[in-house]
Design a protein around this nucleic acid. Structure first.
Length: 489
RNA sequence: GGCGGCAUAGCCAAGUGGUAAGGCAAGGGUCUGCAAAACCUUCACCCCCAGUUCGAAUCUGGGUGCCGCCUCCA
């Protein structure tokens, strides 16, 4: 089976193809940097990061470019409000973006172009559109003439005459008078006094929002790319306009596959900055493990909406614990006599097969995760058997294989593997700091005597005392008490 | 007004013609002084109505409800 991807452009799943064999050129629409990122952004970039990781795991050489929009009305407004140069605003929030998404284990892009770094390319692009008759200058602004592009609306499935201009109620009156058609959009905006400005053939001004992506894609990835992604709110107008710009100027399809992720909802509504109902990534991470957030996102299919609730996060927390415990179980597997002989790269083929089938079907992470949970539960079971009965009921080579597979698949989904060596250090530190084996044995002996005398208050006291020192006691049949040091911190 | 999406157990969420994955939570049993683990076990008439079919959560038509987009937006 081969990878299929849902393409917004055609509204169906299509077999994945690349322009160049085994190379993927991928462009991800990034954020406008005037504020901290919220959970909605987190979802989007976790999803695209996972797509990238999976393509790499399947052997593709992926070039991944993601932009920062570092000049626009909101940035200007923010800089005026805070009385700071706009560069201070954008630098601050770019740093914050990299930090927040890094914590979610989103890999850095191969390039992070900024709008203000490609002004010459943007100007060239606009000139080209004007020369070819797709754009017109109007009193310091430049607009794209949507009526000149016959297939305008093909991505979002609309026709010009169906759209009600200004239906969203956010129309700039002044700009309307300059436009030839209400749907025409700005490629270049004249600067008002005091605003950041760049020299252009049309006077001092700044680029419109959509043109930067067309220019950057061409600059960094070429005239055509394989995958272009973003949140579903970007389908119209942003991506529609990118298509109009790039395909008019270059006369070839911009992207083969257009992918869009569903929203994060909160209490049934879209989470967004304008609704002021967002939770920023950094506030969420104050008391939630980053991998819990990642798991919360991946437990849904990327095109479906997900509802952000305390219950959902709590459930993800428990789910993550299951995976974590399975990874931590390696501390116990290491004590198996033939563990070191079992070391090999071999994976559990059946699990890998099912994982790939799920991911090949338009990145169906909920199903892919079910494979991980099955592995994790089996590993946890083996760990428990070791702790409670002294030996597992699977051959060590199989345990090793399942363990190796779990780690590999978790890594592919960007679920950060805990370093077993760090764990060992933690455990050995605990051992050296707390209590020796002999002391434990002595206490257990005392407790046995208390139990024989039916002095359960005393026996429970000893159990609790040891528990506080990180030692768990297990009473087996035949009056034997086993114990182990707790592996979880 | 136009375009689009969604509706599956207490919660989250797969499943696109063959008789309901997975996760979370909950309950019962064996065992136990208590506890832990293990093992066994319980938990969905798939929003409604009609149709197509040997067979539908899955296809068709009609409803109902919720949501998104229509130049701020991941």
């Amino acid at each position: 089976m081969s990878l299929t991807i849902y393409n917004t452009l055609t509204r169906k799943k299509e077999p994945f193809t690349t322009i160049e064999p085994s190379k993927v050129r991928m462009y991800v629409c990034g954020v406008t940097v005037y504020d901290y990122c919220h959970l909605g952004h987190a979802r989007s970039y976790i999803v695209w990061d996972t797509v990238r990781r999976y393509l790499q795991w399947r052997g593709y050489d992926v070039r991944y470019v993601q932009n920062f929009t570092d000049i626009d009305d909101k940035i200007i407004r923010r800089s005026q409000e805070e009385n700071l140069p706009w560069q201070d605003i954008t630098h601050k929030y770019i740093d914050a973006y990299l930090e927040d998404l890094g914590r979610l284990n989103v890999k850095p892009a191969d390039a992070y172009p900024k709008a203000t770094e490609v002004i010459p390319q943007i100007i060239d692009f606009i000139k080209r559109l004007i020369d070819q008759g797709y754009a017109y200058a109007a009193d310091g602004d430049v607009y794209y003439a949507v009526e000149k592009f016959p297939t305008y609306g093909k991505l979002s499935g609309r026709k010009l005459d169906q759209m009600e201009a200004g239906a969203s109620g956010r129309v700039d009156e002044e700009a309307e008078t300059k436009k030839r058609h209400p749907l025409d959009f700005a490629l270049w905006k004249a600067a008002k006094p005091g605003e950041p400005e760049w020299q252009s053939p049309w006077g001092l001004g700044r680029p419109g929002w959509h043109i930067e992506c067309s220019a950057m894609v061409q600059e960094l990835l070429g005239d055509r790319i394989d995958i272009h992604t973003g949140g579903e709110d970007l389908v119209f107008p942003h991506h529609e306009n990118e298509i109009a710009q790039s395909e008019a100027a270059l006369a070839k399809p911009l992207a083969t596959f257009w992918m869009h992720n569903g929203f994060v909802k909160i209490r049934g509504d879209k989470m967004s900055k304008s609704l002021k109902n967002f939770t920023t990534i950094r506030s969420l991470l104050e008391n939630t493990d980053a991998m819990v957030v990642r798991l919360f996102v991946l437990q849904a299919y990327y095109r479906s909406p997900i509802d952000f609730t305390d219950e959902a996060i709590a459930a993800a927390e428990n789910s993550w614990k299951t995976l974590e415990e399975a990874v931590l179980a390696s501390a116990y597997f290491k004590s198996l006599p033939d563990w070191s002989n079992a070391q090999s790269e071999a994976l559990d083929e059946e699990s890998v097969k099912r994982f790939n089938e799920a991911m090949d079907d338009d990145f169906n992470t909920p199903i892919a995760l079910s494979v991980l949970f099955e592995l994790a539960k089996e590993l946890r079971r083996q760990r428990n058997l070791i702790v409670h009965t002294g030996k597992p009921d699977l051959p060590t080579t199989q345990i090793h294989q399942k363990f190796q597979t779990l780690i590999e698949l978790m890594t592919t989904l960007g679920l950060k593997m805990l370093q077993p060596s760090a764990l060992e250090n933690a455990i050995s530190a605990e051992v050296s700091l707390s209590i020796t084996d002999d002391e434990i044995e002595a206490l257990i002996q005392q407790r046995q005597e208390a139990r024989k005398a039916k002095n359960f208050a005393e026996s429970d006291r000893i159990r609790n005392e040891l528990q506080e020192k990180g030692i768990t006691l297990i009473d087996d049949k035949g009056g034997i008490t086993r114990w182990h040091r707790n592996s979880e911190q």
